[in-house]
Amino acid sequence: MPFSDPRVFAPFILVALIWGSTWLVIKDQISDVPPSWSIAYRFMLACVAMLVLLAVRGEKLRVSRAGIPVVILIGLSQFVLNFHFVYRAELALTSGIVALFFALIMIPNSIFAWFVLRERVSWGFVAGSAVAIVGVSLLLVHEYRAAGVREGVTLGVVLAALATMSASVANITQATDRAHAQPFLPMLALAMIVGTAINVVIALVLDGPPVWDPRPTYLMGIAYLGIVGSVVTFPLYFTLIRHMGAGRAAYVGVATPILAMLLSTMFEGFGWTIITVCGAALAFVGLIIALKARR
Score class of each variant (00 low, 15 high):
138 L>N: 00
51 L>N: 04
164 T>V: 06
179 A>T: 06
293 A>Q: 06
187 M>R: 15
109 N>Q: 11
195 G>I: 03
199 N>I: 04
103 A>R: 00
123 W>E: 07
159 L>S: 08
277 V>Q: 05
266 M>V: 13
215 R>L: 10
29 Q>A: 15
139 L>F: 04
233 T>L: 03
31 S>D: 13
109 N>A: 02
122 S>G: 11
190 L>R: 05
184 F>C: 01
147 A>F: 09
135 G>E: 07
240 L>H: 01
179 A>R: 00
31 S>N: 00
180 H>E: 13
23 W>Y: 15
183 P>L: 10
169 V>N: 01
114 W>C: 14
187 M>K: 14
192 M>D: 08
177 D>L: 08
221 G>H: 11
177 D>V: 02
78 Q>Y: 13
147 A>W: 07
184 F>P: 07
153 V>P: 02
265 T>F: 14
64 S>D: 12
150 R>Y: 00
109 N>Y: 08
267 F>L: 10
138 L>H: 04
111 I>D: 02
187 M>A: 15
258 I>P: 01
149 V>I: 14
67 G>A: 09
291 L>M: 04
44 M>I: 09
255 A>K: 04
246 A>P: 13
149 V>M: 11
248 R>D: 11
207 D>R: 11
277 V>Y: 10
159 L>M: 12
132 A>D: 10
294 R>G: 09
119 E>Q: 12
90 E>T: 13
291 L>E: 04
96 G>A: 09
154 T>V: 11
16 A>Y: 05
179 A>K: 02
179 A>N: 06
85 F>G: 05
116 V>A: 10
231 V>T: 15
97 I>F: 10
244 M>F: 11
107 I>T: 02
176 T>W: 09
113 A>W: 05
87 Y>R: 06
282 L>M: 08
49 A>F: 08
169 V>H: 01
187 M>E: 08
163 A>M: 05
11 P>T: 05
190 L>H: 08
168 S>C: 09
51 L>T: 07
95 S>C: 04
205 V>R: 12
87 Y>L: 09
76 L>W: 12
10 A>H: 12
146 A>Y: 05
124 G>E: 06
210 P>D: 10
167 A>M: 09
92 A>E: 12
125 F>S: 06
156 G>H: 08
225 L>Q: 15
150 R>D: 14
58 G>V: 02
286 G>F: 10
228 V>Y: 01
289 I>M: 15
51 L>P: 00
125 F>K: 01
151 E>V: 00
191 A>I: 02
158 V>D: 03
261 M>I: 15
210 P>N: 10
155 L>I: 12
5 D>G: 01
12 F>I: 02
48 V>C: 13
58 G>E: 04
221 G>Q: 08
132 A>F: 01
105 I>R: 05
19 W>D: 02
45 L>V: 11
257 P>G: 08
34 P>C: 09
136 V>M: 08
95 S>D: 03
175 A>I: 00
114 W>T: 10
194 V>N: 09
148 G>W: 04
27 K>A: 13
216 P>W: 11
54 L>D: 05
7 R>E: 15
99 A>Y: 03
262 L>P: 06
88 R>L: 10
281 A>D: 07
210 P>S: 10
72 I>T: 11
70 V>N: 02
77 S>W: 03
36 S>A: 12
280 A>G: 13
158 V>I: 15
161 A>F: 14
30 I>D: 06
39 I>E: 00
159 L>Y: 14
221 G>C: 13
120 R>T: 05
22 T>A: 03
